[in-house]
Design a protein around this nucleic acid. Structure first.
Lengths: 142, 142
DNA sequence: GCACAAAGGTTGCGCATGCATGTAGTGTCT
DNA sequence: AGACACTACATGCATGCGCAACCTTTGTGC
């Protein structure tokens, strides 16, 4: 899928000012969109039907599993998975409702809240990880 | 399968038991997520506030501007921008409501529908393109 | 101690998306 | 022609997201 002929969006009615760099840039952009869409799409599907997890849910679990110290502030978590605070708050709510994480208040800063993996959460994550890794290997290696 | 703590996704330089490939894979995955989130986020914001366009809207306009022949079937369009058929239908609906595209029925296949840029649509796209290209250049070149 | 601004998190709301379904047109087989 | 499967769009519905408003806690200045 090269960008050899159809990318020149200025085709008939515009002077093509910076054509070649532009084409390369757009090609990279589309490559990124393509790859992202394919990967998240497939991942979403397989993680959902085999582990009842969405992509964002899995990513959060992975972050939590990575450092299972109580250092998982909501805000920091939101940043690492690129979600708004509200989205992350509800996501954690869902995971908590499923018994996969638990919210625990922080002692020294009473407005901060830590999200921690429960044993069930860790188990679910460990089970889902190979699935995700395999798909990643398939879709990211080309 | 010792899967107790070998992912150490956030550990700085931990000894990886079963996964150097794994770490590299995950790193690439996160790089992809990162780049995508940053770019779409910034793009969404700037395109919205300066041209009243979303990222998907812009992408569709670009595809339409690319080949302004009447060969833009809804389904094909949906595929190229990675949207479901329903999402694209509504998106075209919005663009049509804004007067940026028009739906025209196809003569030889009466269930097929072509989406075409209106002059206003082309104008809007031409105006938005430099904005998008500049941001792409900033965020994709590293 | 008492305002007042700012930060962390939650909730109300509108919107875009995907899935499932509905409707219309096409092609095939009998 | 009539029945059937299939394709192309549109639409009802549920869900997840971001923005803005809100509440609580912290820190700063008086």
């Amino acid at each position: 899928m090269s960008a050899s002929q159809s990318v020149d969006a200025t085709a008939p009615s515009g002077p093509c000012l910076d054509g070649r760099d532009d084409d390369a840039l757009v090609a990279r952009w589309r490559e990124l969109l393509d790859r992202h869409a394919r990967t998240t799409g497939a991942l979403e599907k397989v993680l959902q039907e085999r582990h009842q997890l969405g992509v964002s849910e899995f990513e959060v679990l992975e972050r939590l599993a990575g450092c299972d110290r109580e250092q998982n502030r909501m805000q920091a978590l939101a940043d690492t998975v690129h979600l708004s605070q509200s989205a992350l708050s509800r996501l954690i709510g869902r995971l908590e409702a499923d018994g996969l994480v638990s919210r625990s208040m922080c002692s020294d800063d009473r407005r901060g809240i830590f999200a921690c993996l429960t044993p069930a959460g860790r188990e679910r994550y460990e089970a889902a990880r190979p699935t995700q890794r395999q798909l990643l290997a398939e879709l990211l290696n080309d």
